[in-house]
Design a protein around this nucleic acid. Sequence first.
RNA 1: GCCACCCUAGCUCAGCCGGCAGAGCAAGCGCCUUGUAAGCGCUGGGGCGUCGGUUCAAAUCCGACGGGUGGCUCCA
Length: 655
Amino acid sequence: MACRYAPGKSMGRRVVPVIRPQEDGGFGFSSVKIGWNRVSQPLAPWARGSVFGTSHRAGGQTMGSEQEGQLDRLRHSTAHVMAEAVLEIFPEGKLGFGPPIENGFYYDFDLPRSLTIEDLAEIEERMKRIIEGDYPFEHREISVEEARVLFANQPYKLDQIDRLASGQEDEHGEAGSEPISTLSIYSHHNFTDLCRGPHLERTGQIPVDAFKLLSVAGAYWRGDEHQPMLQRIYGTVWETKEQLDDYLWRLEEAARRDHRKLGRALDLFSVQDLGGPGLICWHPKGARIRRIIEEFWYQEHERGGYEIVYTPHIGRAELWNVSGHLDFYRESMYAPMDVEGQEYFIKPMNCPYQILIYKSRRRSYRELPLRWAELGTVYRYERSGVLHGLLRVRGFTIDDAHIVCRPDQVEDEILGVYDFSLSMLRAFGFRDFAIYLATRPDKFVGVPERWDQAQRALERALEAQGLPYEIDEGGGAFYGPKIDIKVKDALGREWQTTTIQFDFNLPERFEMTYVGEDGQEHQPYMVHRALLGSLERFFGALIEHYSGAFPVWLAPVQVVLIPIADRHNAYAYEVAAQLKAARLRLEVNDSGDRMQAKIRDAQLEKVPYMLILGDREMETGTVAVRLRNGQDLGDLAVADFVVMAQSAIAEKRDL
RNA sequence: GCCACCCUAGCUCAGCCGGCAGAGCAAGCGCCUUGUAAGCGCUGGGGCGUCGGUUCAAAUCCGACGGGUGGCUCCA
């Protein structure tokens, strides 16, 4: 009960800098927290509540396998031991919740002072002593009255007791119905907690060398920003030291892949103080990658039956009134600017303007479906605390498209978008996907019946394809339900990319119509979709997925020519000209460095191919090919190398 | 926005309990002309995020603001 799984999201934290959430790709309509969120088996300290948390919230032990249940028990028990250690130091400390989470656990406290990293070391020491004391965990059922007495000095526990006793919440943290009369408590040594359990039998079953406290962070009581902020200590614990080390290594690996770090190291992008937070500057090498993505994107969209459009970046207030943005989205929009006495807003979404194009003339049912795509840059005000690298920004480009169709076409269109999305994502090297159906949020427009109808349409589309998916309750956009697709990267983390959103709000607000076969006017259906999400976030995902070592077709520099001595420079330029003619992106390193240093530099820049040019190559007209994976392919004729590189590009291979 | 922490040369980072700033890498220059992850030397470069306090004296203490990091909340 008390220490049931966290109400909100919960995340592991780590010593090393890591990733985290970002704005969702969609039309911005975020909702899904990605970023660190990318849960999943392999890694995923960053496992969060939201969608993934469902199994947790659903009851704690429902993690599936027996082993996971056992790990949960271990983590939950370790959280209790930590709480005791904290109370030893702060006898007046107040307890919040302390659940197990993906890869670890946390416990929230209200303490007289802020914790420091140094405190963690002392808490760990005390935890070790409690573990070595091998105290038994004892379970008891007590009445609500007894509990109120027992936790008289624990206001948060009393709060929880009240909620349970009044039936506001059940012991699994779900909205309850039946008031509860008995409560479950667990004790060990000098610590007792209101808790559903289960726990280990004894503290001694916690491996002393396999746990670690990772960080301290603020967290609102019950995840409600109107409630007091508690101090949350994140920790991790495993069954063996090897598992702990492995986990810590994964955290470090994630830190090594951090797109912000790689973005600077590889000179891909930056965020400038003087310009403003959350606003991305794409450096030449990052921009090269972006252009490759964009060119591929345009090409695929044209093949996929889309027309390309462009729309303005700002629009009069009335446009956003009609669209409903000023009613539903204003807090996320930049303040208006006055132009000749008229208010203009920077666009937070592309859809209204696309609708204006639609409305520029009468439309016939024969024209539908219309599929209009645009790489539309939007700006949204995001609270400062949520900004993060490329993942959550204030200005970004959505690979947007809007499909206007007849009701009888909508399912096919959604299916089409779904397939299109997967093929697009696969092209960029993503193989595993997680699919979510996001339903009606608290704040929504339209009538519930239409929402239900739309959700059923999306469900049917999903089911027609036989794709496994999860429900993201309340995660829909204000104007309609949606399907979200997240890709899993090389570390198993999930990144929000595709969003396919049903919209029956805008067609109505803008009074969109088409003339049907019957000569009457009908209201069309509209689907918004973004496949990559936003170019910024997608780029961030790509960087981390590839750890900066992009496949040849995306690599900003595909080949570095390395003349061994000055006398080989001329030959290098000659080869460079040939490669350039073959449209390869290359650089000649004609600096005074030794070959070794040149190779090292190219390695650090993660350039796929290094061509070493010395006397031997010059004489035979060849190039010595070294791959960035360290492999030495020996001398190849220039033409052969070109064929090799071009095939890697054509097939979008790594090398 | 909230809690905590951080902000020293382009980058990574040292500068303990206050006394007028250092290293490595990078950069520029020079020597070497070199076969698969760093050849050697020299030189330039910051006044310690900004503003304001405390002090005889602050990069080192306090405060505000800005930016960042980890979470929380939010995310049409």
